[in-house]
Computed example of a mutant assay.
Amino acid sequence: MTKGALISSLGLYLHVECTGNKVKRISLSYELPDEPSPLAERIAAHLEKGAPCPSVELDLSGCTDFQKRVYSTVQGIERGERMTYGEVALLTGRPGAARAVGRAMATNPFLIIVPCHRVVARGGLGGFALGLDVKERMLALESLEGSG
């Protein structure tokens, strides 16, 4: 059974999976969730309207130490800001590991809470699992004046 909420401005559903009190996975999908999720609604409101980002405990048990450092660094990127893969690599103590950061972003199980859409290539947007058009729209939502 999936739980989630609609992100109307993207035309996508935010799905949230939890194990106990920990968030195991947050993803975007075109599929309607089985039931609503108050947490998914709060995360969607953060992205769409600039509401405070919910404070949640992430289940990092399936992540490598490098991924944990990258995800922690990326959580520090403020709404409306961007950072390059290389800058994230430098801040995690692994200068030159921009490609590894890109891989960590591609496998990020905590979308929006770990805002991988805010990590871009030096010369452009980089990649995004649901396509660059979705990444562009997510970034645009966050940079709109008066979105909060």
Results as ranks from 00 to 15, higher is better:
S147E: 07
I77N: 06
D65E: 14
S72P: 00
A106M: 15
E35A: 12
E35P: 04
A44Y: 02
I43S: 01
G123R: 14
G62D: 10
L39P: 01
A51Q: 01
Y13A: 06
V16P: 03
L39K: 00
E31R: 09
T64F: 05
V16A: 07
R118P: 03
L39N: 02
K3C: 09
S61P: 08
R69S: 12
A44L: 10
D59N: 10
P54T: 02
K135T: 08
R137S: 11
F110I: 07
G148V: 05
S61A: 13
R82T: 14
I7T: 05
L111N: 06
E48Q: 13
E17T: 12
Q75M: 15
A100E: 15
G4T: 07
S55Q: 13
R25M: 11
A44G: 04
E78L: 12
T64C: 06
I113G: 00
L130M: 14
G11Y: 14
Y13S: 08
V16N: 05
E145K: 12
T84P: 05
P109S: 05
T73R: 15
R25T: 11
H117W: 04
R118V: 03
P54V: 00
S147M: 14
R42W: 01
C116M: 06
G146R: 12
E17H: 12
E81P: 00
T2H: 09
T2V: 09
A51E: 03
S55D: 13
S61G: 12
L28I: 07
